[in-house]
Design a binder for these strands. Structure first.
Length: 360
DNA sequence: AGTATTTGACCGGG
DNA sequence: CCCGGTCAAATACT
């Protein structure tokens, strides 16, 4: 990457960090009554509205910068899948512009892609639980890559015509990191998925603690192919790094969240989220499952798109949809933040503020 | 027996 | 022709 671009990126990161801080503050204010607001909000004189304004402004700045960067170059991927992945039906050809324009066969590369980098702590072999069930259908040695790439498709491809696929590849540099490329979007409704979201948060939290404990103290004997219970995923927060980058947007730096500070597990109020937050809206915004439920993802993104904020970055809802559709719990935090970043119209409800740390 | 994974073959774009 | 992506038969697993 060029130097100027790096500088730009740094300043974008700054903006995003600022935005994060502001949203944190806002969250504290919003939910101070229901959760133990331990952290001190420095200048708590800001009203919620002011904070929101600030956040939006910050995000807009960041987005503008990113937009600039994207225009300068490196936006090939952006062009590739520049949109039109509407909430299409599984089979109807949801055409990419290039396809539409060129009247070319509806072949590969027509699905929007989104790449995630996941640092795996507990040796999940790239099979991080993301809430959806995948079926491996191939593996390929990739030129120049040390490790083979695994190809997965949605288990319900045949049954429900869900065309979502993902590619999992262990990173060359760091074997603990898996690069996961999601292609397409889930159109299926996965029961297991729904079930997971229904897991009482308190339970989840306990798990987190346990896992944190274990991972911190001594690495568990790492086994490849350990199937992690869904809850375990949250442990990524403590040590794991989750990077979500939309190949189309390329606007989000890598995020690394640590778990929210966790109190004792004997109180429901000590859930990751204040219990009062666990309402439908929140569950939906946190959980990828909402994408596969009847909840209208399109609605969500209508909102998003209508903000104009999104349009300044991208014209399509497809990518964003794709982002949020990321079902994985690993991306849990990321999703939350993406929501925050992107959906200013939903600020009032989509505030799963639990990010504690934003690493680059 | 049913389901999931592995792996070599095949296909198509560049 | 090379390479990435997918298919599908064989194999493993439950």
């Amino acid at each position: 990457m060029e130097e100027s671009a790096k500088c730009e990126q740094v300043s974008v990161i700054d903006e995003l960090l600022l935005g994060k801080e502001l949203t944190k503050k806002l969250c504290e204010q919003l939910f101070s009554s229901s959760s133990s607001s331990s952290s001190s909000s420095s200048s708590s004189c800001d009203t919620n509205e002011v904070l929101i304004e600030k956040i939006i402004s910050t995000m807009e700045k960041a987005l503008a910068k990113v937009n600039c960067m994207a225009n300068v170059g490196e936006s090939k991927a952006m062009m590739d899948s520049h949109c039109s992945f509407t909430n299409g039906s599984p089979k109807s050809e949801v055409m990419e512009p290039e396809v539409e324009h060129k009247h070319v066969s509806k072949k590969r590369k027509t699905m929007p892609r989104r790449r995630e980098q996941v640092e795996v702590c507990l040796g999940t072999e790239g099979n991080k639980e993301d809430g959806y069930s995948w079926r491996k259908y191939g593996q390929k040695d990739i030129l120049g890559a040390k490790f083979p790439r695994g190809y997965y498709r949605c288990t319900y491809r045949n049954i429900q015509g869900c065309l979502a696929t993902k590619q999992v590849q262990k990173s060359d540099e760091d074997p603990m990191i898996y690069e996961i490329t999601y292609i397409g979007r889930h159109t299926c409704t996965q029961a297991s998925h729904l079930k997971k979201t229904a897991v009482p948060p308190s339970k989840t939290k306990v798990r987190i603690e346990e896992n944190q404990h274990q991972t911190n103290e001594k690495n568990q004997p790492q086994q490849e192919k350990i199937e992690q219970p869904p809850e375990t995923i949250f442990s990524f927060g403590s040590q794991g790094e989750v990077k979500v980058e939309d190949l189309d947007l390329e606007i989000f730096p890598s995020f690394c969240f640590s778990s929210p500070s966790i109190g004792s597990e004997n109180d429901e109020n000590n859930n990751i989220f204040p219990y009062s937050m666990i309402d439908n809206n929140l569950l939906e915004s946190f959980s990828p499952s909402f994408m596969s439920t009847t909840t209208s993802e399109s609605d969500m993104f209508c909102n998003w798109e209508s903000t104009g904020l999104g349009q300044s970055v991208h014209n399509s809802t497809s990518d964003i949809t794709d982002i949020v559709s990321t079902p994985t719990s690993v991306t849990y935090s990321s999703i939350m933040d993406l929501d925050i970043f992107l959906d200013k119209n939903d600020f009032d409800i989509d505030f799963p503020m639990n990010t504690r740390e934003l690493c680059i």
